[in-house]
């Protein structure tokens, strides 16, 4: 099961590379979404391996809050700087 954690970390790094090289702003937002979802998977697997339930609270907070952040940025770009 430790191999799963290693593979997930490598996939997270590959998604983060999309944020760094992405040609446009929307590519970067997409990459941020992908990194967040992979990080949630990583936290769930680690919580299962160490058998600690309170790690899942962190995953829940990640899932709810990244939603608010990305939606906010997308709306800001869509209305060209005016809310």
């Amino acid at each position: 099961m430790t191999a799963v954690v290693t593979i997930l970390v490598i996939l997270t790094i590959l998604s983060a590379l999309r944020i760094l090289i992405g040609p446009s702003l929307w590519d970067r937002m997409l990459g941020l979404n992908l990194v967040t979802s992979k990080l949630i998977m990583l936290i769930i697997v680690i919580a299962f391996l160490q058998n600690q339930t309170f790690f899942l609270d962190l995953a829940l907070v990640y899932a709810l809050l990244s939603f608010v952040g990305i939606i906010f940025i997308a709306l800001y770009i869509q209305r060209k700087g005016r809310f």
């Binding site: 997409l30 949630i40 899932a63 939603f67 990305i70 709306l75």
Partner: peptide, 22 residues
């Protein structure tokens, strides 16, 4: 874990839709 799955299932398509619409 099931609760997290149900929340993410709702949120993931919404975020992608918002980015592509923008």
């Amino acid at each position: 874990v099931l609760l997290i799955l149900s929340i993410s299932l709702l949120i993931n398509p919404l975020v992608t839709h918002s980015v592509v619409r923008s």
